[in-house]
Amino acid sequence: MNSDLSCNSVTDELQVLESVFCQSGEFTLHDLNAEAGSARYTITVSDSSNNEQSPNLGSTIAITFAPGPCYPKSLPDISLTSDLLTRKAADKMKTSLIEYANAYLCGEPMAMEIVEWIRLHFKEYANYENQQEMTPESQGLGTCVTSLLRLDHMRAKGRYIKTLTSWCEELGIMGRIIFVERLILILLEGHQARVKEFILRLKTQKVDVDSSGKACKEKMMSVLSDKPTDKHRFSSFEVSEMGSVQELRKYFDSLNLSQLYDEHLQPLCRHPLQGAIR
């Protein structure tokens, strides 16, 4: 691998990380060898969930990265430290993280994506008890949730939809992707951890193309709502094209999601922002 490319990847990424994790104690640079393209630094974050059953999960996890000369073609060395993780839980979490990163992240600077994965999955491993193998019941799948996401646009519509559909099939998530006027919505129903995994993939994997036709990640997705539910409204994940916001309103009424529409969609339907299928 070109050593200059490796050096640039590390130093450029460090600048971004220092600007993002700029609060006291969030980012610590231990060592940097610019000529070799290697470094060692620690990012300390809290988990991204508010779990009433685990109120102590405001605690932090420290992630130490040590990218080497072959980074980002190969993964950086990573170590995890938290008072809420037993050694076995930390090892289990690291193994799962490495599997994910090898499958989806190699080839591009990946520290932000790794931090996001850890924040979203921290609760599962912090709840790892009695050093037993994690089962579906102990993985922290959580309750069933209904989540509403909004996309700004799609350029490669067919490819995008195919990717989302395959993720839902793999994760056991049901719901709809809805196109109406200038709005693109994703309505999801599934176990909390699986929906979080879907959202993580949407943030970190290449699902669309940019204006030059190059594969790119989703940078303009927003989560409008994410709430527990005891209802099961869907048996599949499908595409729904609607002709008007009035039809959208009737659809949400039929699902007993009128409140969700009133709180999050009615303002958008009054003043839809620019952006749709291009």
Results as ranks from 00 to 15, higher is better:
3 S>Q: 06
10 V>S: 08
16 V>D: 06
17 L>S: 12
17 L>D: 10
21 F>K: 15
24 S>N: 14
25 G>T: 03
27 F>Y: 15
29 L>W: 06
31 D>Y: 11
40 R>W: 00
40 R>Y: 00
46 S>D: 12
46 S>L: 09
47 D>H: 10
51 N>I: 03
53 Q>W: 08
54 S>L: 03
54 S>V: 02
57 L>N: 15
59 S>W: 05
60 T>L: 08
61 I>F: 08
63 I>D: 10
64 T>C: 13
66 A>P: 02
70 C>V: 06
71 Y>S: 04
74 S>C: 12
80 L>A: 10
80 L>H: 10
82 S>M: 07
82 S>H: 06
84 L>G: 04
86 T>K: 08
86 T>P: 03
87 R>P: 04
88 K>C: 07
91 D>N: 15
91 D>C: 05
93 M>Q: 14
95 T>A: 02
97 L>S: 13
100 Y>C: 11
100 Y>G: 07
100 Y>R: 14
100 Y>M: 11
101 A>T: 15
103 A>N: 13
106 C>Y: 08
108 E>D: 11
108 E>H: 12
112 M>L: 15
114 I>H: 15
115 V>A: 11
116 E>G: 08
122 F>N: 06
124 E>R: 12
126 A>N: 07
127 N>F: 00
128 Y>V: 00
129 E>W: 05
130 N>S: 15
130 N>C: 11
130 N>E: 15
131 Q>T: 15
133 E>V: 02
133 E>T: 04
134 M>V: 10
135 T>K: 06
137 E>T: 12
139 Q>P: 00
141 L>A: 02
141 L>M: 08
151 L>W: 01
154 M>I: 02
155 R>Q: 01
159 R>I: 14
162 K>H: 12
162 K>M: 07
163 T>D: 01
164 L>P: 01
168 C>I: 08
171 L>P: 02
175 G>Y: 09
177 I>Q: 06
179 F>S: 10
183 L>G: 04
185 L>F: 02
188 L>E: 05
190 G>C: 04
196 K>H: 09
201 R>N: 04
201 R>K: 08
201 R>S: 01
204 T>V: 14
205 Q>T: 13
207 V>H: 08
209 V>L: 04
210 D>P: 06
212 S>R: 13
216 C>K: 15
218 E>Y: 06
218 E>N: 12
220 M>W: 06
223 V>R: 09
224 L>R: 09
230 D>V: 11
232 H>C: 02
237 F>S: 11
237 F>Y: 14
237 F>P: 09
242 M>G: 11
242 M>C: 09
242 M>F: 09
243 G>N: 15
245 V>F: 14
248 L>C: 12
249 R>N: 08
254 S>Y: 03
255 L>F: 00
257 L>H: 05
257 L>W: 05
259 Q>N: 09
260 L>I: 08
265 L>N: 09
265 L>G: 07
271 H>N: 11
272 P>R: 09
